[in-house]
């Protein structure tokens, strides 16, 4: 059953930018959906409209069947975790968590019990008396998460909560948040512009560009079967090669690939791991650089007209810069007019 329902929401800022453009999304109970997109694609704006911090120009947002489109944040059953600077530095950790409960006139004993339980959940048991300024960046974001969780919101909203943390901490907190989210079965919208974050956490990913949805799918589907060239280029590494199709053959420079579609321009998308190389008397590309990562190697190749493509190989030590090779795509997709028209 869908808990959060976003229907045809548009937000135009006074400057005239369409930050979010006719956006629709349904989020099921207990689902974690990642909003993924480049900077400025409207992810934060969308999240802030769900939280009540921005008003959409048109469209409807309903939570549990109840319309909240124009309710202020304090009257919505949502809890938001901000990127940073959102803790109240004049209160200690306990008071930060208890503030919302006090506003709900909960008895003091019950508040203490709840706050302690949630602190335990985020791994900060016993930190209640600390001032927030005496915590590390990771601990501060855990307090921010706990502050939202303690109110048991119907929907948890996270706007790049780990962006200011280092790589290791980010990965650890990502797993913790995912664990907590699954344990509490709390419906979650998570904004990120890191694709590995989205791929590792999400039940579904919404790829956004220019305020519009590019694709909504499970992470593995988004990776394996990107529906638009934008998604293909944005998620993972992808060779996007522009060329012409004639008589069922795609041509770019010396590269030719059988492609059973109508004649005309097309963009061919091949993952590096799906592009095999072989020695050949009539080479189609020359090796530019070989990078050996130990477990595998990455080869940069140049077509005759200078187009750069990448290939992932198991034995990079057999290749030399300047060497001519043949290109053998194993799996690929083709796009025309921003739509996928073929997938092998």
């Amino acid at each position: 059953m869908s808990v959060l329902h976003i229907a045809d929401v548009t937000k135009t800022f006074s400057g005239g930018t369409n930050a979010v453009d006719s956006f629709s999304l349904d989020v099921a109970d207990g689902e974690l959906v990642c909003l993924l997109g480049p900077s400025g694609s409207g992810k934060s704006t969308l999240l802030r409209m769900v939280g009540g911090f921005e008003q959409p120009n048109s469209g409807r947002i309903t939570i549990d069947g109840e319309e909240v489109t124009h309710l202020p944040p304090e009257r919505r059953p949502t809890g938001m975790v901000f990127q940073s600077h959102a803790l109240w530095t004049h209160m200690n950790v306990f008071k930060n968590l208890a503030f919302g409960l006090k506003l709900r006139r909960m008895p003091a004993a019950q508040i203490r019990e709840k706050v302690e339980a949630v602190l335990e959940l985020v791994g900060l048991a016993g930190y209640g008396d600390r001032m927030t300024t005496q915590l590390s960046g990771g601990q501060q974001q855990r307090v921010a998460l706990a502050r939202s969780l303690v109110l048991e919101p119907k929907i948890l909203l996270l706007d790049e909560p780990f962006a200011s943390l280092d790589q290791h901490l980010r990965e650890r907190l990502r797993e913790e948040v995912r664990d907590i989210q699954q344990r509490l079965k709390i419906t979650t919208l998570f904004v990120t512009h890191g694709q590995d974050e989205a791929l590792s956490m999400a039940d579904r990913i919404v790829v956004m560009a220019n305020g519009k949805t590019e694709q909504i799918d499970r992470p593995d589907v988004v990776y394996r079967d990107p529906k638009t060239p934008f998604v293909a280029g944005f998620i993972g590494t992808m060779n996007l090669i522009e060329g012409e199709v004639s008589n069922g053959i795609f041509v770019r420079s010396a590269l030719t690939v059988p492609l059973p579609i109508a004649d005309g321009p097309a963009t061919l998308a091949i993952r590096p791991e799906a592009l095999d190389l072989s020695a050949s008397d009539i080479p189609k590309a020359s090796v530019h650089r070989v990078t050996d990562y130990g477990s595998h190697g990455l080869v940069d190749l140049d077509l005759a007209d200078g187009t750069r493509v990448k290939s992932m190989v198991a034995h990079p030590d057999m290749l030399r810069a300047g060497q001519g090779v043949d290109l053998l795509p194993r799996a690929f997709a083709a796009y025309r007019n921003n739509q996928q028209i073929y997938r092998s």
Binding site: G51, G52, F53, P72, P73, E74, R75, T78, G79, M80, F82, Q83, S84, H85, A86, L87, W88, T89, H90, F99, G100, L103, R104, A144, R147, S148, L151
Partner: peptide, 27 residues
């Protein structure tokens, strides 16, 4: 007073008056 700390207070249910009393005034 950071904007986000005020938005966080509204998020947990404080109206404008309470935000002023509990978040802005102490700062």
């Amino acid at each position: 007073v950071a904007n986000q700390s005020i938005e966080a207070a509204r998020d947990v249910g404080a109206n404008a008056l309470r935000v002023f009393r509990h978040i802005i005034l102490p700062r």
